[in-house]
């Protein structure tokens, strides 16, 4: 009898297992195709090290920028109903539907040195987005912002609005309520948003490829200006120049770094429950 009632779940689990294997297999293949000495040799190459570090660094900055720009919008969407709200929601989700190379082209047409905003910054501050760290962040932000806004919004929606009302009657202004009640209680959603943003950003290729193939940036580790590619761009570059062997070794390293960071972050955010 017990088996009959569980049948559906057994079949569903088997189907689910197929999907899990599909996700794990290619990743495991990348990691286990290389022995440790090869990986160590690859890591010893300065352009590989720079690329992995640049990817981590740029995506972390992107997560911070996304949090600062995305949280207020998430709060508005969670709390207010207004005309055109569904249009705003559609715009928030739009980057999910735009091919990333298209996003890169679009960004370039706005932030390029002789375009709209790009020209403004170049003429007034001698500041370029194309081929710089800020360009990488723009590209990453564009493609990952839906994750930030939607997660933070879910966080705010989980906070009972009457709780905010209660705080208002006790004398707190709207901003005080946000700071002392809504923000701390929506913290999990915001942190999840930042992790997803970071994960999406570190893996971004298309938009970064268009906007900042070679990235000149100020390296905070060596305290010197440097030029490098982000890791996904470097992997594509190496694949085209030298083939699978070389590119997959770098891929394995990037994967290991990402997985460990992802595991640590999930562990840390899980502990905050």
């Amino acid at each position: 009898m017990r088996i009959r009632t569980e049948k559906t779940f057994i079949i569903f689990s088997i189907i689910g297992f197929i999907l899990l294997v599909f996700i794990i297999l290619p990743l495991a293949k990348i990691i286990f195709s290389h022995d440790l000495p090869t990986l160590a040799d690859t890591l010893a190459m300065p352009d590989v090290r720079d690329a992995i570090w640049l990817s981590i660094y740029a995506s972390l900055l992107t997560a911070v920028v996304a949090c600062i720009l995305g949280t207020p919008l998430a709060y508005v969407l969670a709390r207010k109903n207004f005309k055109g709200k569904s249009l705003v929601e559609a715009i928030v989700d739009l980057p999910l539907a735009v091919p990333h190379t298209v996003a890169g082209i679009g960004l370039l047409m706005v932030f390029g040195r002789q375009q709209m905003i790009g020209e403004l910054f170049y003429d007034n501050f001698d500041f370029r987005f194309f081929g710089t760290l800020s360009g990488v962040i723009l590209a990453m932000l564009f493609v990952s912002s839906p994750f930030m806004v939607n997660s933070a919004r879910e966080g705010f929606e989980s906070v009972n609005q009457r709780m905010e009302y209660a705080a208002r009657t006790l004398g707190a202004s709207q901003f005080e309520v946000f700071r002392r009640i809504s923000l701390p209680l929506a913290r999990r959603g915001i942190i999840t948003g930042m992790i997803l943003t970071w994960a999406r950003s570190i893996s971004e290729f298309g938009a970064v490829y268009i906007l900042a193939y070679f990235v000149s940036y100020w390296d905070i580790l060596s305290m010197e200006p440097n030029i490098a590619m982000t890791a996904p761009v470097l992997i594509a570059d190496q694949f085209l120049q030298y083939g699978l062997e070389r590119s997959s070794a770098i891929a394995a390293l990037l994967l290991l770094v990402c997985l460990s960071l992802f595991a640590i972050l999930r562990y840390l955010s899980g502990r905050q429950k």
């Binding site: 009972n160 009457r162 709780m163 009302y165 209660a166 705080a167 208002r168 009657t169 006790l170 004398g171 707190a172 202004s173 009640i181 209680l185």
Partner: peptide, 17 residues
């Protein structure tokens, strides 16, 4: 605004922080 009315409010569902 609500915060200036000096009203004590106890809500139906628990709204303790």
């Amino acid at each position: 605004v609500p915060e200036k009315r000096n009203i004590g409010f106890g809500f139906q569902d628990y709204t303790l922080f």
